[in-house]
Amino acid sequence: MKEVIERFTCRDDDGQTYDVLKRQNISTYQPISGPPRRVKGTIDFVLSNGMHLNASDDETEFTIVQTDKKIRKY
């Protein structure tokens, strides 16, 4: 299951804004004894419309996979 852990706005060079969701995979682990535990997994970024993003190392610049457009966090 993916859980939204952050939501922020980015802008392209033309001034258009984009709503970005930072999501993390969450798995439930049930040990033999004891309560279930939530295990955090990989993180990905998508636009609010579902288009996928590739993030820079510092997570301030993104490329929209489907269009190759560059957007920046502001």
Rank of each mutant, 00 (worst) to 15 (best):
E3M: 14
E3V: 15
T9K: 03
D13P: 01
D14M: 09
Q16M: 02
T17N: 15
T17I: 14
T17F: 13
T17G: 10
D19V: 07
V20P: 02
L21W: 02
L21Q: 11
L21D: 09
K22W: 05
K22N: 07
R23F: 05
Q24I: 14
N25L: 08
I26W: 10
T28G: 12
Y29C: 08
P31I: 08
S33E: 12
G34S: 13
G34Q: 13
P36C: 15
R37I: 11
R37L: 14
R37T: 11
R38E: 15
V39A: 07
V39S: 08
G41D: 09
G41P: 03
I43M: 00
V46E: 09
L47T: 01
L47D: 02
S48H: 08
S48I: 10
N49D: 11
N49T: 04
N49S: 05
M51V: 11
L53D: 03
N54F: 00
N54S: 06
N54K: 02
D57Y: 10
D57H: 11
D57G: 10
D58I: 02
E59W: 07
T60C: 06
I64T: 05
Q66G: 10
Q66R: 10
T67P: 13
D68Q: 08
D68V: 06
R72N: 09
Y74M: 15
